[in-house]
C-alpha cells in the first residue's frame, strides 16, 4: 500500500503538468474559455433583459426627457394603488387554483397511463400531446364554442330541458379562465408525473405488499412520495406561467376575469407606461420566485434531488 502511494502521487502530479505542456494554455485561461459560451448565453438571454427591466423600472418615462430621470415613483404607485396589489393577489390565487385543479385532474391520468395502459401507453401519450400541437389561441377559443351563450353546454342543457334560457355567466368570467387554463395545462402536468411514476421500480410495490401494506397504504407510503418530484415539476410548469398569463383572461375572462398579466400588457401597449409595466413585472417575478426556492428546498429535504436511486 505505502509503496503504491509513494509512486502514485508524483504520477498524478506529472499528468496534470504534461497536459498543460501539451496544450500550452494556462489552466486559468482554459477554464475561462470553457465557461464563456455558457456565460454569453446567460448574459444575452437572461442578465441583459433582466437588467433592462430593472433599469426601466427606475426611470420616469421610457422615452424623451424623462428617460434620464431616476425615480421611485412607480414602486410608490404600486404600493399605494390597491388595484395593482389586488390584481396581483388575485392572479396568484387563480394560478394556485388552476395548478391544484390541474394536478388533481392530471394525476389519475398519469397513474392510469403508467400502470394500467399496458401496450397502449405510447398511443395514449400521443393522443394526450396532439392538442398541444394545435395553436394555443385555437384551443382557448374552442372553449367559447362550449361555454358561450349559444355554445354546446347551453344548447345541451336547454335541449334536455334543464334550463329555459342560456346561462350567460359561463363565459367572460373567472371560472371560464380557470376552466380553460386547466384544460390547456393538463398535458404539461401529466408528462412529468407520468415519468416519475414510471421510474418507480416495480419490485417496490411487491416489497410494500409483502411487508403487509394494503394497496392504499402502498399508494400513500410508496407511490405518492416517490412521485413527488414529478408533482413538484408539474406544479412549477403550471404555476409560474399561469401567474403571468394574459392571453386567456383577455380572450375568455371578460372584464371580471382580468389578471396582472393583462395590466402589464396594457402598460406596455395602450398605456405606453413602460416603467410602470416593468415595475409590475418585477413585483410579479419576485413573488413567483418564492415558491421556486421553497420547492427546491423541499425537494432537497425529501432527498428527491440528485443521486437518483443509486
Amino acid at each position: 500500500m505505502s509503496t503504491q502511494n509513494l509512486t502514485n502521487t508524483p504520477a498524478v502530479h506529472n499528468r496534470r503538468g504534461i497536459k498543460e505542456q501539451l496544450t500550452g494554455i494556462p489552466r486559468r485561461r482554459q477554464l475561462i474559455a470553457l465557461i464563456s459560451p455558457a456565460s454569453l448565453w446567460l448574459f444575452f438571454l437572461l442578465i441583459l433583459p433582466l437588467a433592462t427591466l430593472v433599469m426601466l423600472s427606475f426611470v420616469k418615462t421610457a422615452f424623451g426627457e424623462g428617460s434620464t430621470v431616476l425615480t421611485l415613483e412607480h414602486y410608490r404607485a404600486f404600493l399605494q394603488n390597491t388595484i395593482y396589489q389586488r390584481l396581483l393577489w388575485r392572479s396568484l390565487g387563480i394560478a394556485l387554483l388552476v395548478t391544484v385543479l390541474t394536478l388533481l385532474f392530471s394525476y389519475p391520468v398519469a397513474y392510469f397511463m403508467a400502470y394500467f395502459a399496458g401496450e397502449r401507453q405510447n398511443l395514449l401519450l400521443t393522443i394526450l400531446i396532439i392538442p398541444a400541437w394545435t395553436s394555443f389561441l385555437l384551443r382557448v377559443l374552442a372553449w367559447r364554442l362550449i361555454l358561450g351563450s349559444n355554445g354546446l353546454l347551453n344548447t345541451f342543457l336547454m335541449g334536455i330541458g334543464i334550463i329555459q334560457e342560456p346561462i350567460t355567466g359561463l363565459f367572460f368570467s373567472t371560472p371560464a379562465v380557470i376552466i380553460t387554463l386547466v384544460y390547456i395545462w393538463i398535458p404539461f402536468a401529466v408528462l412529468p408525473i407520468y415519468v416519475s411514476l414510471q421510474r418507480i421500480e416495480g419490485n417496490l410495490f411487491e416489497a410494500s405488499a409483502d411487508l403487509g401494506a394494503r394497496p392504499w397504504q402502498t399508494f400513500w407510503k410508496v407511490i405518492f412520495p416517490l412521485s413527488l418530484p414529478g408533482i413538484l415539476a408539474a406544479f412549477l410548469f403550471v404555476f409560474i406561467p399561469t401567474v403571468g398569463e394574459y392571453v386567456t383572461p383577455a380572450l375568455v375572462g371578460g372584464p371580471n376575469g382580468l389578471m396582472i398579466g393583462n395590466i402589464i400588457w396594457d402598460q406596455f401597449s395602450r398605456g405606453l407606461d413602460w416603467p410602470m409595466g416593468a415595475t409590475l413585472s418585477l413585483m410579479m417575478m419576485l413573488i413567483v420566485i418564492v415558491p421556486l426556492f421553497l420547492s427546491s428546498g423541499l425537494a432537497e429535504r425529501l432527498g428527491l434531488t440528485g443521486g437518483g436511486d443509486e
Binding site: 419490485n203 411487491e206 416489497a207 409483502d210 412520495p225 425529501l302 428527491l304
Partner: peptide, 12 residues
C-alpha cells in the same frame, strides 16, 4: 416476507 434480488429498498 421476502428479500428481493435487488433489495427493493424504498429510496425515499
Amino acid at each position: 416476507n421476502m428479500v428481493f434480488q435487488d433489495y427493493a429498498l424504498f429510496p425515499h
